[in-house]
Design a binder for these strands. Sequence first.
RNA 1: GGCCCCAUAGCUUAACUGAAUAGAGCAUUUGACUACGGAUCAAAAGGUUACAGGUUUGAAUCCUGUUGGGGUCACCA
Length: 594
Amino acid sequence: MSPDKYIIEKTKEAVAALFGAGLPEASFQVQVTRKEFEGDYTLVVFPLLKVSRLSPEATGNAIGEWLKENTEEIAGYNTVKGFLNLSFSNAYWNSLFSSIASDSGFGQLPPTGKTIMVEFSSPNTNKPLHLGHIRNNLLGWSVSRLLEANGHKVMKVNLVNDRGIHICKSMLAWLKLGHGETPETSGKKGDHLVGDYYVAFNNMYRKEVDGLVAGGMSREEAEKNAPSLKEAQDMLFRWENGDEEVVALWKKMNSWVYAGFDKTYADLGISFDRTYYESQTYLLGKALVQKGLDMGIFEREADGSVWCDLTADGLDRKLLLRGDGTSVYITQDLGTAEQRFSEYNLDEHIYVVGNEQNYHFQVLKLILKKLGFAWADNIYHLSYGMVELPEGKMKSREGTVVDADDLLEKMYNTARETSLELGKIDNMDEEGQKDLFRTISLGALKYFIIKVDPKKTMLFDPKESIDFNGNTGPFIQYTHARIKSILRKADERNISYMSAVADVPLSSKEIRLIKLLDIYPGKVAEAGAAYSPAVIANYAYDLAKEFNQYYHDTPVLREEDESLLKYRLRLLSVIAEVLVKAMDILGIRLPERM
RNA sequence: GGCCCCAUAGCUUAACUGAAUAGAGCAUUUGACUACGGAUCAAAAGGUUACAGGUUUGAAUCCUGUUGGGGUCACCA
């Protein structure tokens, strides 16, 4: 049993024995003792004063004395103000560590039987992925892994927005200006190629608008009537009516984009269990609109459009079907949600989508609830903040968008330069080096993004790139490489430490390390409940830092006492394992050497 | 304007359900390589947790108001 739970249980007994009264669970609060005080764990005694009817000090001392007398594990105590600091016996720490070390599934919580779908990434096919998508992808991936560690069955899905006016714009520009250019002939990655034509369209369009305005038309009129926009709209119409030529072009250009996306996803190390395409789902939801009309919760206007009035709930009126009977974004979201919940019998559905869509998801849940779906409550919008640059928001018009592929390449180069400079891997073969540079650069990027609380707007400075020192991914990777290096040396000396669980005296730093290891499963649960991989990231850093401090003044391999030597090596190996597990949740690999 | 989110050291950021002197990293200053990995460690300095009230034994955390920033309120997705 974990020390904090143990203390709570025993304190309950103490309170009953000493004061003859019981208290609710919430009255018992235990925390790790702060460094500046003597002790391992601290009981907050204030909530217990009600029944003790004594001063905080007297209450703490009475409970401390009782615990010391009546348990083997608690060896000492002191009370400072209202805080009872308890010290566990050395034997207790030894046995706690051995139970952690022998648990091969440590940190993996028991199966819950729940199935959770996580939708993330969800790109448009008219432009390449950028920094914002990276945050989305990394969050979606790590939350999925986190929920798996919490014992859930997780299904990762992507919903590709492959249809609509935007892709028609790229297609149109390609027809007019492309001269048959392909990824092969141009040497461009498919998503970038198509993205370039999207930009080209907008340039063409803007010129037309300016021309019309110069000819005396109002800007508003001009923006609606520019010929290229009309053409794009016509193309969308033809697409919706299955025009073979348009559909063939659409398929061709989308296939280029998908090849490009696949490369970026592979570079990021993420994958999906299923990919949905809007071209196949955009008609879903119409039946639900009819159902809502039948139930009387939706209303049809004279022009045929259908609305849901949410003003009574403090929201607005929401359009669900256009006057011409076609559906809008939310219509298909209603439909896909229903389809997914029934097809996979989901217990929960998480959407990893930026916070600019908070309102959308609020409306979505509310309408589903009004339609009578109990599972509407099991939809969770994992809303994350934007990634901003030092000069402010990323704006495609101003060319400040940080491209995902560019960024990955720059990170790779930085990692290579730094590693080669340090010269520790000169004897590694070329493939091994490349793999290492990739691991380090991705580790840096992923950690940098994931360690920040998802809901906060975060700042990313590409010029300064990303640090490799301090609270960073590479610091944790480095720590792991150091531990592995020590363990390799132990192997060379044929020291077998894997089953070393002797009764040895532990230093305070060793106890701190064991304490940290012990709270890992709790951190996984905490992070899972909050859908926040950042908790795990910060935990891994704490553990790595604690190890570095310990290691600096404890020359492990020089220890002459054999049982102590083996014990310490075993401790290091468990630290390395836990680091690997924690970082795996974040999608970050830890190299054996670097 | 209505609704939602955010505000912590010069910068980037922690702090689970309220708890001890608000933790880190970067940058700055200083110290530690005759090493089991210096991508390290030790130390200094840096805070009225935007502001004003309130609740509480106790508030960065909860409540009210103010200021500042962002988002959203499309027959776009």
